[in-house]
Design a protein around this nucleic acid. Structure first.
Length: 476
RNA sequence: CGAGGUGUAGCGCAGUUUGGUAGCGCGCUUGGUUCGGGACCAAGAGGUCGUGGGUUCAAGUCCCGUCACCUCGACCA
């Protein structure tokens, strides 16, 4: 057994060197390649299939909440960016700018969208006339570019794919309701599809989206106790409406500025999946979003009837709506087992001469490696049931970790020990920027979300009366 | 931009201290034996040593320049 090969060595680093494990596994499992431009990624078919599954699930939810898809331009006049003061300040350092077109220097440079509030705002101002036009509920699936200094595949790349919802409403209440509704959609999606339980809540001023009145985020706990911002929903108030003149004539005959929102999740979710569920053997994908839900590995494939039986089984599973694959490559079965485990396929089915004779199949689940048998006749139902069980177990496992690894701290030392032990830490905070910065400096932890409805006590940093209970964690 | 590191075959690396025929593992190709947890045998293909200049009879190795990438900091979905 060639246990000393490079892959095994690298996988063994999982506990001690998580980011390295992450990058290696992401590349080895053929999710992505690095692009020719620094910080860019080429999403390969297997990785893209995960994204397609995420898109399918999210899109169904957006449609169910009345949103429509549309598409806005990639290039945005530079002047649009500067109309909202806080927005330009936040994004200017990380935009890519086009200065030449058709061989000539452009009169006005164009930015490659880092996000689309500005172009969409410009269009909404043209579309919106009357209160009857409201609400405008639009989502777009697009790519955006942000010139990041350090990058990691899926988690932070210069270009990434995402969806961005942009809505406009007549009232503050309605816009705030939309903001919270979409945060709720994300949370439900993360838990039922990705099997990742999340913390949701309001972000601090420092962590807020540039140009928003308030930002709400969902934070997912990774293996190593670090947090990953997995989605955001912004209440923009009238900031962008005023900057882009998004006005309507209301019932009372007066012109009013609309209240807008925006919300998004990105291909970072794939990174979240990998980090939340992955283990020492590679990826572990929840069945709902796994490109391949069940892989059939024929054993002793040269023996009579094995290949035929495997192919027939695959057809039967596919007909039952299961994303099934059969591996007829000439690798050894041991190789195939490891290969598909590394790729995170939730269920493996082994079928060989002995199984065919006995009229059964062997099922192995990826999350626990537990083996079971099922009659060949009842294969689709057995696989369906097992997929459901894997999905539920992954969520349960992640939920348990999420619950066990939240501690509270009274002082800075407690906070430091908490995050060093791989925990999220609840602590009081006075609300001032100085303390927030000082906490980051001393513990490398940042305020992830504000926790509602809990007694605040004293600020961990300055000891003054705390305004908020904050969930602190080290973050990706 | 601050600090450190690395560029040699598709991938991972050795060789550089002390200059002297370009190496290893994996992968790849061909043929054969295998196949219930990363099989084996045999024969092959594949490299302007990041790049420009210099020293030398001779440079992957020494000297000067330059480019790219990686890690850690500040920023971020």
């Amino acid at each position: 057994m060639a246990k000393d090969n490079a892959f095994v060595n690298q996988i063994a680093d999982i506990e001690t060197d998580f980011p390295r494990w992450y990058t290696d596994v992401v590349v080895k499992t053929e999710l992505v390649d690095y692009g020719p431009v620094k910080g860019t990624m080429v999403i390969r078919p297997y990785g893209y299939a995960i994204w397609e599954n995420i898109q399918r699930e999210l899109d169904a939810r957006f449609k169910a909440t009345g949103h429509k898809n549309a598409y806005f331009p990639l290039l945005i006049p530079y002047s649009f960016m500067t109309r909202e003061a806080e927005h330009v300040e936040g994004f200017a350092p990380e935009v890519a700018v086009v200065t030449v077109g058709g061989g000539e220097t452009l009169a006005e440079p164009l930015v490659i969208r880092p996000t689309s509030e500005t172009v969409i705002g410009e269009m909404y101002s043209k579309w919106l006339q009357s209160y009857r036009d409201l609400p405008i509920l639009i989502n777009q699936w697009a790519n955006v570019v942000r010139w990041e200094k350090t990058t990691r595949p899926f988690l932070r790349t210069s270009e990434f794919l995402w969806q961005e919802g942009h809505t406009a409403h007549a009232t503050e209440e309605e816009a705030m309701e939309e903001t919270m509704k979409m945060l709720g959609v994300y949370k439900e999606f993360a838990e039922t599809c990705l099997a990742i339980p999340v913390f949701t809540g309001r972000k601090t001023e420092k962590e807020k989206f540039a140009g928003a009145v308030a930002t709400f985020g969902m934070e997912a706990m990774m293996h190593d106790g670090k947090s990953l911002q997995a989605g955001t929903s912004h209440y923009l108030g009238q900031n962008f409406a005023k900057a882009f003149d998004i006005k309507f004539l209301d019932k009372d005959g007066t012109h009013k500025y609309a209240y807008t929102t925006s919300w998004g999740v990105s291909t970072r979710l794939i990174g979240a999946l990998i980090m939340a569920h992955g283990d020492a053997r590679g990826l572990v994908l929840p069945p709902v979003v796994a490109p391949v839900q069940a892989v059939i590995v024929p054993i002793a494939a040269k023996k009579e009837g094995v290949v035929e039986a495997a192919a027939a089984l695959k057809a039967e599973l596919c007909a039952a709506g299961i994303r099934a694959e059969a591996d007829f490559s000439d690798n050894s079965p041991g190789w195939k087992f490891n290969e598909w485990e590394m790729k995170g396929v939730p269920v493996r089915i082994e079928i060989g001469p002995r199984d065919i004779e006995a009229g059964k199949i062997v099922l192995v689940r990826r999350d626990t490696h537990e083996k079971s048998e099922a009659p060949l006749q009842a294969a689709p139902a057995a696989v369906q049931a097992l997929l459901g069980s894997v999905q539920a177990n992954l969520l349960e496992r992640a939920r348990k970790r999420k619950e066990e690894r939240v501690v509270t701290a009274e002082d800075m030392n407690g906070l430091l020990q908490g995050v060093e032990g791989g925990n999220f830490v609840k602590a009081g905070w006075c609300g001032c920027r100085e303390c927030e910065d000082k906490i980051k400096e001393q513990t490398a932890a940042s305020a992830r979300v504000l926790v509602e409805g809990e007694h605040a006590g004293k600020c961990v940093c300055c000891g003054k009366e705390a305004k908020h209970v904050v969930l602190f964690a080290r973050a990706y």
